[in-house]
């Protein structure tokens, strides 16, 4: 579970990367692992520590798809939408998932249980369509296994 914003905890994370070349991305990954997102106050703090402007840090945070402004749901389902999964009817299965949970791409269920995100290739292309549920790979998805997956996620 992500912890609530804590400035001294963020300082510790930044300090851990001291002496590293080009430390911004590793710091952002660790901040997100800790707090579930890049909290707004983290940006000026990181900028000061790395002698960057806030705009530069914000520019990096907003450039990369992985970094979030708000935490995701308790579970994160990343569904592959790239060509290999398309060739195996991945889009139809994805629609099934989105309908089941009543969310749009990138959306989180109102109770904060699940976030469904699009991803473009998980390297599981010979076992398409594929997905990552909380970082665990799932392949050869079918209508039936998607239903089972939805059951497993719950609600």
């Amino acid at each position: 579970m992500p912890t609530a914003w804590n400035e001294s905890r963020a300082s510790e994370i930044i300090r851990r990367h001291e002496g590293r070349e080009g430390p911004l991305l590793p710091i952002l990954h660790d901040v997100q692992a800790e707090f579930g997102c890049i909290p707004a106050p983290a940006i000026p703090q990181i900028a000061t520590a790395l002698n960057l402007t806030r705009a530069e840090v914000h520019g990096v945070v907003s450039f990369y798809h992985d970094f979030r402004e708000a935490p995701a749901g308790r579970h994160v389902l990343k569904l592959c939408r790239a060509e290999a999964c398309q060739s195996m009817q991945g889009e139809a299965l994805a629609d099934q998932v989105l309908r089941h949970f009543g969310v749009a791409w990138g959306g989180t269920t109102p109770d904060g249980h699940l976030t469904v995100e699009a991803t473009y290739c998980l390297g599981l292309c010979a076992c398409a369509p594929s997905a990552l549920l909380d970082g665990e790979p799932r392949g050869r998805l079918t209508t039936a296994s998607i239903a089972a997956l939805a059951e497993e996620i719950g609600r």
Partner: peptide, 26 residues
């Protein structure tokens, strides 16, 4: 080991270098 952050364009070599330096992957 460095971990990317979901930008396809970082597979382009100069963009990857920018990303390693801690910048936008341009």
């Amino acid at each position: 080991v460095r971990v990317g952050a979901g930008a396809y364009v970082c597979g382009e070599e100069t963009s990857l270098l920018e990303s390693l330096e801690g910048k936008r992957g341009q």
